[in-house]
């Protein structure tokens, strides 16, 4: 039976026939790897779009922020919608400032600390969204070749067993089984290589964005602390 199967295999070596001839394990590995490849590219597209958008928003916000426009006004316009990135940090800091200041804060140091905390929390939340799913890219990039290799090893194992059964070492008998097994490694590499490249690129981009957010947070916290000093001093002097 195996002999017949192998003989038939010798005639058909197209990609589809190679896939159909493969054993169950190899088929599963191949399907899994194709799925991984799809997922990788989905992440790549998603990240590419979202990072581009974030960068544009950062630029836009920084332009508005440093344009000399009143912070109160800016807060009022921004607080009405959902914000991401620098805007979210700004809104969080302003909200904390308003709450503490309007109710009459006693200690400027406590206020400063609260604002910083609020900004940190928002910043880390934002960074998390940027780095989301980059981990799966890393996993696919590192594990993809191994998974493909596993499929190859299993495929070669089964094809050698088939050769042993056929009692012929004719290359026409040996070749299709090995070619089919190697297809698994090929798919693994096809999935893994873009994943590795994309992971490296997007971690660097995410690092840049979070760096920018940190820089903005520091600058904004400096501005707020100056404001706190200016506004609390007359109040204390009045008392």
């Amino acid at each position: 039976m195996e002999q017949v199967g192998l003989a038939a295999a010798a005639s058909e070596v197209s990609l589809w026939s190679l896939f159909m001839q493969a054993g169950l394990v190899v088929k599963l590995v191949m399907i899994g790897l194709i799925g991984a490849s799809i997922w990788t590219w989905a992440i790549v597209i998603d990240k590419y779009i979202s990072f581009g958008k974030a960068k544009r928003q950062f630029d836009q916000f920084e332009q508005v922020f440093w344009s000399g426009q009143s912070l109160e006004e800016l807060y009022r316009t921004l607080s009405e919608r959902t914000n991401t990135g620098l805007a979210a940090i700004f809104v969080a800091a302003m909200r904390e400032w308003k709450k503490s200041f309007e109710r009459g804060a006693r200690s400027p140091i406590g206020l400063q600390m609260r604002i910083d905390r609020a900004m940190d929390v928002t910043m880390s939340r934002e960074a998390e969204t940027y780095e989301a799913r980059l981990g799966s890219l890393a996993t696919i990039g590192s594990a993809g070749p191994f998974i493909g290799l596993f499929g190859t090893v299993v495929g070669i194992m089964t094809s050698f067993q088939a050769i042993a059964g056929s009692k012929s070492t004719n290359l026409a008998v040996v070749a299709p089984g090995i070619a089919e097994a190697l297809l698994a490694t090929a798919i693994g590499l096809v999935a893994a290589i873009p994943a590795v490249i994309a992971y490296n690129k997007f971690t660097a981009d995410a690092g840049k964005l979070s760096g920018r957010m940190e820089g903005f947070a520091d600058e904004f916290s400096a501005i707020l602390s100056r404001q706190i000093d200016e506004k609390l001093q007359p109040r204390q002097a009045a008392q």
Binding site: I34, I38, I45, I49
Partner: peptide, 20 residues
């Protein structure tokens, strides 16, 4: 994410179809 997943799927089917 759904959009990008859909795009990726479409791209893959295209590429695989071409390869076949």
């Amino acid at each position: 994410m759904k959009v990008s997943l859909g795009t990726s799927l479409v791209l893959h089917t295209l590429v695989l179809g071409l390869a076949l």
